[in-house]
Design a protein around this nucleic acid. Structure first.
Length: 872
RNA sequence: GCCCGUGUAAUCCAACGGUAGAGAUAAGCGACUUAAAAUCGCUCCAGUGCGGGUUCGAAUCCCGCCACGGGCACCA
């Protein structure tokens, strides 16, 4: 019977080791090497401090931790920090609903989550912890904003916001429901124009798109998502001069080749020229339509299934090529902030224009027909007959008809010809447009980083001088949730002297989008305690770009794009060297768990009340339940609390399970039985080492291998080095923790029961290798066993085991015998057997006799060491 | 509608174009036990979503489908 001290009990072992690591300072970041390649920056996306750690966090941080630990064992100097994305609405809502101070509430949550995190045994350098809501951090967020301002990349303009007329406040898009109502007051949200701050991300749109090619360490789908989001489209601007008088309407089009098919021009209802083109007769209709569009939320306005609606203004412009009159309309499907806010309507060749023209009886003129290739005349093409009344728009490129001198031109050639003609006539130019818009960063909220600007009646907006930073958030502000920006009511804070002229002036009362704070935090970690700068150039150059970034794919666009934008601007200003922030990106999958739903009531049933999971039934009605795997959430009753798992099995088991159950990019299905399985595996290792200790094995120092190894020695060494090879490969580049752990299992299986049968140095080599390879995954257990077996220092200070290629060599190999690609037998041959000899052996084998029926094969394929394929 | 990803055993997952199974879970059998649990050993289970093609040889490469998941979607 096992004595008590030989039991694997993670609950007392893990806290003990966490304490020891702290004393040894193992997680502290070493001074970086001057050689960048000797430093390694491992980073997890920092969390919002909700106060509760969930499994998604655990997966994220454990993945990063394993990578960090492996790199340390490989001799790298590792930066592995953690912090808090601490500004945001939940704190403000807590203040509104429960009267608690947002700062206190946030700090409390941080304290709670930090303790939960520490139980996981993450090798995080807590001395570099940062929180975006603390003045010593947001001081530098403000400083960076001023950098943008100075570079001309921050500007103010009128923009519409969601305005709740009952609460008298601005709402974020997420706070407006699908019916356009406020989540709190239920009032219909209005759109209101406010002067807001923007960052000119469009200035680097080209680089953001082009440099995606550099990011080979990013998942392709993230790069595609960003490319789609940026949305570069190539085309032209064309000017439609006023029918009478000076001026023109400028439109953007990707299809200049369809210019002769224009039957109307449409402005966005918000377009500044709308008034000018509205005739007296249309005045009322136009005003009514504009008012109506103003009430529609942006989401609805761009919903594709909406019918396209519009109103003729009465005025008209002249066609730039044919001089004919073209009526001017406004329509809801034209957006004010894309292109020029005006579109040429070509119903025959654009689906939207087509349905609009149909609804309003506008002419549909075909000017492009499919190019028909005449057989035998590859370069020539013959236009098909244009349809009299098309049923839908023909949106592909083709051959021009009804286009005057341009008739017969095709595709890109036609586009170019028309652009060239437009340029010559002074009515247009080639133009590239982006879907990407400038980034609106103003938030009419309290719990965010104050925008460091002072508005003066005579000087305009004046930046707060650097030495006056940070502009601290005032405490004790009225956070009733009504009445616009809360800071606007902080009278004592708001009124200041203008830094430029000294006259009474007012602070900017909006705060920044929290994505501003998270767009540079990875730079601050490199120099987290610098009081005089956001970060020193030396520190960022030593660590940037981040070698491995790990986080959820939900940030594929916003956070990752904004961070790339920041880095590019800072690189241009000489503040950082690298122009991309994240070299390698791993987007981990969701953590899911089983959910049960009653198909008729659509209600979720907690797994705890489902009596028989193999035949799930509603405990009340007895109906059969639907079974899904879905992301863990409270409303579905399928959340698993990390703390409870650690209580029961320990952090090492939780880590092992999460890493083993699925490849990191894929969704992971929580399964208690599999958790149990990992616990059993760790126990097996524990027992293996107990046995080794009792057999007198020791890891105090490596002993030299004997000159002569017997077959058992060789076999065990082969298993050890195969594991070293496979695990090293799994942890390099695209990481595969699940297969790495299965290799660990294989190795421990190979060692089980065999340690006493081999030479002592061989057994000790196997033990040491197993434990070091295990250390990144189950850091507490590995260190405990290392110590118990007499290992010196902490296992985390050891080196990754070296591969001895000679140990992998086998004397004999099994060669597969195939006949016509089908496996028909095997040959056991000396490893050195060459191709000719293999062929001879194969032809002489029973297999050949049986399957070739005396005929010589037509072909023989030999892969030395692998197989021989006989093709009759 | 467009783009991306994934389909392999009851389940989760592996397999440089070369023996479909590494590892695990579940199930079954056996050993140990007075018994159970734990532990140890053994066993069962798929021809890789479907249809073509390339190849000596295809889960893997190509083409066309299907299912599921995700992203984008009046961007002119």
């Amino acid at each position: 019977m096992a004595s008590p001290e030989t039991r694997y009990s993670p609950n007392d072992l893990e806290p003990r080791w966490q304490q020891r690591w702290l004393e040894l300072g193992l997680d502290r970041t070493p001074a970086p090497s001057a050689e960048r390649s000797e430093n390694f920056y491992a980073l997890s996306m920092f969390p919002y401090p909700s106060g509760n750690l969930h499994m998604g966090h655990v997966r994220n941080y454990v993945i990063t931790d394993v990578i960090a630990r492996v790199q340390r064992l490989k001799g790298k100097r590792v930066l592995h920090p953690m912090g808090w994305d601490a500004f945001g609405l939940p704190a403000e809502n807590a203040a509104i609903e429960r009267g608690v101070d947002p700062a206190d509430w946030t700090e409390q949550n941080i304290a709670q989550m930090r303790e939960q995190l520490k139980r996981l045994g993450l090798s995080i350098d807590w001395e570099r912890e940062l929180s975006t809501c603390r003045p010593d951090y947001y001081r530098w967020t403000q400083w960076l904003f001023l950098q943008f301002l100075e570079a001309g990349l921050a500007y103010r303009k009128e923009a519409s916001v969601n305005w709740d007329p009952i609460d008298q406040t601005v709402l974020a898009n997420e706070q407006v429901d699908s019916e356009g109502r406020s989540w709190r007051s239920g009032a219909l949200v209005e759109k209101r124009k406010l002067r807001q701050w923007f960052l000119r991300i469009t200035a680097v749109a080209d680089e953001l798109l082009d440099d995606l090619k550099q990011l080979q360490g990013w998942p392709e789908r993230v790069r595609t998502m960003q490319a789609n989001w940026i949305g570069r489209s190539t085309g032209a601007t064309l000017r439609f001069p006023l029918a009478q008088g000076d001026g023109a309407i400028e439109v953007f089009t990707t299809r200049p080749d369809t210019i002769f098919g224009v039957s109307y021009v449409v402005l966005a209802p918000e377009h500044p020229l709308v008034e000018q083109f509205t005739t007296a007769a249309q005045q009322t209709a136009v005003a009514a339509f504009k008012a109506e569009v103003a009430t529609v939320s942006d989401q609805d306005r761009v919903a594709e299934d909406r019918p396209k609606r519009g109103v003729a203004l009465g005025g008209s412009v002249r066609h730039p090529f044919s001089d004919r009159d073209v009526p001017v309309w406004i329509a809801d499907y034209v957006l004010p902030d894309y292109g020029t806010g005006a579109v040429m309507g070509v119903p025959a060749h654009d689906q939207r224009d087509f349905s609009f023209a149909r609804s309003y009886g506008l002419p549909i003129t075909t000017v492009v027909v499919p190019a028909v290739v005449v057989p035998g005349h590859q370069a020539e093409s013959q236009p098909a007959q244009p349809p009299a009344a098309p049923e839908q728009a023909f949106t592909e490129l083709g051959t021009l008809v009804n286009s005057g001198e341009f008739d017969g031109l095709t595709g890109e050639t036609a586009k170019q010809a028309i652009i060239t003609a437009a340029v010559a006539a002074g009515v247009g130019a080639a133009k590239v447009n982006f879907r990407l818009r400038d980034w609106l960063i103003s938030r009419q909220r309290y719990w965010g980083c104050p925008i460091p600007v002072i508005h003066c009646d005579s000087c305009g907006p004046v930046p707060v001088p650097e030495e006056q930073l940070p502009v601290e958030l005032p405490r004790d502000v009225d956070l009733s949730g009504v009445g616009g920006s809360p800071l606007a009511k902080a009278e004592a804070w708001k009124h200041v002297a203008c830094p430029s002229c000294g006259q009474p002036a007012q602070r900017e009362t909006d705060t920044m989008d929290t994505f501003m704070c998270s767009s540079w935090y990875y730079l601050r970690y490199t120099d987290a305690n610098n009081q005089g700068q956001a970060f020193s150039r030396a520190a960022v150059d030593a660590w940037m770009p981040v070698d491995q970034y790990v986080g959820g794919v939900e940030h594929a666009i916003l956070h990752l794009l904004y961070s790339r934008f920041f880095t590019k601007v800072l690189a241009q200003r000489g503040l950082v060297a690298s122009n991309e922030p994240f070299k390698q990106l791993l987007t981990q999958g969701m953590v899911q768990a089983v959910t049960y739903r009653n198909p008729s009531s659509r209600r979720y049933i907690a797994p705890a009340v489902v009596a028989d999971p193999s035949n799930p039934q509603d405990p009340d009605s007895g109906e059969a339940l639907e079974v899904f795997f879905e992301k863990m959430s409270k409303s579905k009753y399928n959340g698993v609390d990390p703390g409870a798992v650690i209580d029961r099995y320990g952090a090492d088991t939780a880590r092992m399970f999460i890493l083993f159950k699925a490849p990191p990019e894929k969704d992971l299905e929580w399964d208690d039985a599999d958790v149990e399985g990992q616990f059993r595996f760790l126990q097996r290792i524990w027992r293996l080492c107990e046995g080794a200790k009792q057999a007198g094995l020791s890891l105090a120092q490596p002993s030299p291998l004997p000159e002569q190894l017997n077959p058992a020695d060789q076999e065990l060494r082969r298993a050890v080095h195969r594991a070293i090879e496979a695990i090293s490969e799994d942890l390099d580049g695209d990481v595969q923790f699940n297969t790495a752990i299965s290799e660990l299992m294989k190795l421990s299986n190979a060692m089980g029961g065999n340690l006493e049968a081999v030479a002592v140095p061989v057994a000790e080599e196997a033990l040491a290798s197993l434990l070091v390879l295990l250390a990144p995954f189950a850091p507490h257990l590995a260190d405990e066993l290392w110590e118990q077996l007499g290992g010196k220092g902490s296992i985390h200070q050891q080196r990754w085991p070296l591969l001895d290629a000679a140990a992998l060599v086998r004397d004999t190999v099994t060669v597969v015998l195939q006949v016509k690609g089908k496996m028909r037998g095997q040959l056991e041959v000396p490893a050195s057997t060459d191709a000719a000899e293999l062929e001879r052996l194969a032809l002489a084998s029973d297999v050949a006799v049986k399957w070739l029926e005396g005929q010589p094969p037509r072909r023989v394929i030999v892969v030395p060491g692998k197989l021989v394929n006989l093709v009759p």
